[in-house]
């Protein structure tokens, strides 16, 4: 989403409004956009969620299958989360290998969930050092309206929470499905990311596309169910003061708790 002359003009307007304590879409500074989560989006996946955050739309599907463990993690299952911008999501998106922005998006979304230890990987071992269960949460961005970090994180978290998988055992050295009862993925906590933009000296929760295009810097903070901070990423070419960073931490805990309730509700509807 490269910046344009139009973005410069919008920035002037957005800044003028911010000086009066207002945002272009009428939200409060710490107010995220409407979040809608549909956890019945892809029935053939082990779990899924279609998340609408403002006009950003993300679909996440979870696939669960046996895999070889990482060499130094033979007693842990595998968790991998990806994110991709589909060419139909915005005119500036091209096909081909992902650029640095998309690589960062995928890695930040993955890190938030991974570092919270949401999925209990120790329960996903079929045979130590030989075969483990892999949980793959793949996000695709269908429509773009800013703040894909949170949209993808909410989609992945909701999809994992509603995921069910068969049980595997080693039969003749091959992981084989046993029984016909699917069980939920073992979950220890619900990570929630909150992304904030800094425009001028203002901190805005959940920036929309216009705010995203003209922000000076951004910060994404993920908190877990115990109100601990478990992952953080600063981005953009501006800087934050210590006070701002601490304030953003407080906002992420407070707003994250509200969003966690929405995710919980959506996940319980989907089960």
């Amino acid at each position: 989403m490269t910046s344009s002359v139009l973005d410069d003009l919008k920035r002037t307007q957005i800044l003028e409004l911010l000086e009066q304590g207002k945002r272009t879409d009428g939200r409060a500074m710490d107010e995220p956009r409407k979040l809608v989560i549909d956890t019945s989006a892809v029935p053939k996946a082990n779990g899924s969620a279609k998340v609408t955050l403002g006009d950003s739309v993300v679909v996440c599907g979870v696939k669960i299958q046996p895999d070889r463990p990482f060499p130094d993690m033979g007693d842990k299952g595998i968790f991998i989360c990806t994110a991709e911008l589909l060419p139909l999501s915005h005119p500036s998106v091209e096909t081909g290998p992902p650029g640095p922005d998309v690589v960062e998006l995928a890695r930040v979304v993955d890190r938030g969930i991974r570092e919270s230890h949401m999925v209990d990987l120790s329960q996903l071992v079929i045979e130590k050092n030989k075969s483990v269960v892999g949980v793959f949460a793949d996000n695709v961005v269908v429509d773009y309206d800013g703040n894909l970090f949170d949209a993808c994180a909410y989609a992945a978290t909701s999809a994992i929470m509603t995921s069910h998988s068969p049980k595997w055992e080693m039969v003749n050295d091959v992981p084989t499905i046993v029984g016909d009862q699917d069980t939920p993925v073992p979950i220890t906590t619900i990570p929630v990311s909150v992304t904030m933009a800094k425009i001028g000296n203002h901190i805005l929760v959940d920036p929309n596309a216009d705010e995203w295009a003209c922000m000076d810097a951004r910060i994404t903070i993920t908190t877990d169910s115990n109100q601990n901070i478990c992952a953080l990423q600063k981005g953009g070419t501006g800087g934050f003061t210590l006070d701002e960073v601490v304030k953003c931490g407080e906002i992420s805990v407070r707003i994250g708790a509200k969003i966690r309730e929405i995710i919980k509700q959506a996940a319980s509807n989907g089960q």
């Binding site: 910060i219 877990d224 109100q227 600063k234 501006g238 800087g239 934050f240 210590l242 960073v245």
Partner: peptide
């Protein structure tokens, strides 16, 4: 940036309480 007192790179992985978070940045 020590003279402008601006944090320009900040990342975190791992679990911290709110107090630990502040102490870590400091």
């Amino acid at each position: 940036m020590p003279n402008l007192e601006k944090i320009t790179l900040l990342q975190l992985d791992g679990v911290l309480s709110a107090e630990e978070y502040k102490k870590c940045v400091e």
